[in-house]
Amino acid sequence: MTRNGKQNIGQMVLTLIMIAAALIMIIPLVWMISTSFKTQPEVFAYPVKWLPERPTWEAHRKVWLGALNFVKYYRNSLKIAVLGTVGAITFGSMAAYGFARVQFRGRNLLFGLYLLLMMVPPQILFVPKFIMFDWAGIYNTHWALFLPTMFTIIGVFYMRQHFLTLPKELTEAAIIDGAGHFTMFRKIFLPLAKPTIVTFAILDFTWAWNNYEDALVFLIDEDLYTVPLGLNNFLLEYSIDYPGMMAAATASIIPIVLVFLFGQRYIIEGLVSSSVKG
């Protein structure tokens, strides 16, 4: 057998193994979507029917046109996630640049504080935040959700790592040209950091979209509900309607899957450049 042939067989075997592993990874998702098109008795039929015999939209109709207003939850979640992400990327990339490429007094101390705060469990902060928000009059408004999202610590951390990896010569050449830091940041570093920034935009968006705890504590009016909150209420109300539950869950992940599909080519590049030189 030729060397090439051997290689091809090896490649096939490896591919098969990897496909099997990948299937295990997506089974919970496939199960969720497939169940959402089933009727209740079909849910636990064995052997598993991955494709329902008579697929029905009933469950999805209940989610989108039923008592719950998923369209409204979507609008609220989008607003919060987009505003939060834009802020997180803007303030985060600026801070990351400052920490990575500018010399100023107290820099390491401040960054050390960030590292320390990375370890803070978010549950500690609920009660004090609640009191502050109430005092500031933003409790039970979307501000209480997207304002904190705008200040990401982990994002600053990763983006700083990325800025550190860029060659020193970039700064030196620009200084000789007489460019200030703001020009350098805008004209040189931001464009170079595009993959990292897109990656964090995707991750921030995902985190904001999936944020259940803050919405739970800081929102009261049903008009303000976000998707995870609506989803959880749905799950509690219809706790034995499996297709309905799965249809609601499916509805809640659609934007994440879309964002991921469009942005995935950046994710690898972005995470790599921000963590390799740890």
């Binding site: 919970p28 998702l29 199960w31 979209w209 259940y212 995870p228 869950a249 809640s252 992940i253 994440i256």
Partner: peptide, 13 residues
């Protein structure tokens, strides 16, 4: 992909 999916949604699955 699983890394991005919310725990509330996938937990019930």
């Amino acid at each position: 992909l699983p890394y991005l999916i919310s725990a509330v949604a996938i937990g019930f699955s």
